[in-house]
Design a protein around this nucleic acid. Sequence first.
RNA 1: GGGCCUGUAGCUCAGUUGGCAGAGCAGCUGACUCUUAAUCAGCGGGUCGAAGGUUCGAAUCCUUCCAGGCUCACCA
Length: 496
Amino acid sequence: MEETNELIQERIKKLQRLKDSGVDPYGVSFDAKDKAREIIDKYGHIAKEEFETKNDNCTIAGRIVAMRDFGKACFAHVQDITGKIQVYLRKDILGEGYGLLKNIDIGDIVGLTGKVFKTKTGELTLEVKDISLLCKSLRPLPEKWHGLKDIETRYRQRYVDLIVNPNVREVFLKRSKAIKSIRNFFDSRGFIEVETPMMQPVPGGATARPFKTHHNALGIDLFLRIAPELYLKRLLVGGYEKVYEINRNFRNEGISTKHNPEFTMLEFYIAYADYQYLMNFTEEIITYVCKDVAGDLRVTYTISEDKEEIIDFTPPWKRLTMAEAMEAYGVDPSVFKDLAGAREFAVKNRIDIDKNASHGKVLDEIFKEKVEPYLIQPTFITDYPLELSPLAKRKKDNPELVERFELFIAGREVVNAFSELNDPEDQKGRFLKQVEARQAGDEEASFMDEDFVRALEYGMPPAAGEGIGIDRLVMILTNSSSIRDVILFPQLKPEA
RNA sequence: GGGCCUGUAGCUCAGUUGGCAGAGCAGCUGACUCUUAAUCAGCGGGUCGAAGGUUCGAAUCCUUCCAGGCUCACCA
């Protein structure tokens, strides 16, 4: 971090010269009335000749990203949040102010006012009348042509990535837009946005290993939440009928292109609705967000280097039960009969399964291996085995299945939703089952949450609840192949 | 955690059989008032990821370690 090289030394010298000449190299506030993009939009279509009689001035602030020096004149590009615009500095116009240029580098942040015109080659340009340095930059930016490619540097020094890679800026603008769009959607439909604990004494609402932390004053261990579910349902008990939360979940598991230890989840609950209602509702939300962010219901997604797919969000989306989907992708229906049948199929197809795995778990494994990767277009899968869903309501006609669906897009689970179990006795029994599984060594099994059962005993209206993985959704909307490309500061090992 | 790959100048990358460490951009000096990967002349810049080993000699071969990528396992 302390490294200094010749290029930095040069800039420090310039910094000193600026100070010596009475220039504040770290500027003050600057009223940048105009934006690069707006200027280009406003004047771009006007013919070059017309500028000869015009005298329109604009004021912008931004970072110098390119410079072409001619001795007594200089072209540069200045970049602000909206984009880049060329500026033209002339000694005969700037007079003494032109001397500032000697100590200015690519990367410096400047504010300037100039007359709008078009160059010989037709590029809209500001002929600078006044320039002030707002911030001297001490480190050289990556090369102008190849930019910053090194993935590690891009993630570790995201600020540099954002300066030089416009597509990266674009991705995170889209992410912000997607989240705003989701809020609009829910707010306009009578939901209230809530915040529930990130630090929980009993981690629940999902099957995953939690992070543990400690509160000194209370003298207790707490867990970073793996899901907000149990708290949001407590709010249904409390009388709120439509709630949503957009916030971070934390899971103490592997890191991959699809997993970051902290990730953003949207969860929402609707009293008196069920999972069937939610499927339609999900189509509505996602098409709403997709239109807003991508401008179209069809988006291109790069599945792998040599495989690109157009994902079409035009509803209705395909709906299959887990069993139907398995059959459609060539899984022998005998797997549903019993554990032995499922196990046999798994072994035959070289699917790794834990030797203690239950029937439901084995089915889940087979599904993940044989079906999930092929669900490219948005597809709802319904009717999951009870034991995989300790918080979901049983199906009336088959109590071993639950009223649940997951939505798959591009071969990935993006949504998980179900009719919420509101029978306290059943819930308590399911918790106990989970506790048993935990004692038998399943580290992901849930803990008993006594207070949640107590809440259900007061009565929770029948309700439907859903979780949407925001990072994964944004990946699809921005054609990003790694979750790290949609998280500003993804988790990495500390720099050596 | 396993397998495969990568790490060389600020950035993007070459580096042959083990034989003086290279290019482009960026930087510095000079020229240049419509360039846009500006151009022209010249100059400087390296812990070759780290440590150890083999060798007369290592960026290059071997071992270990560090970081990253892809992938598998686990998961969302």
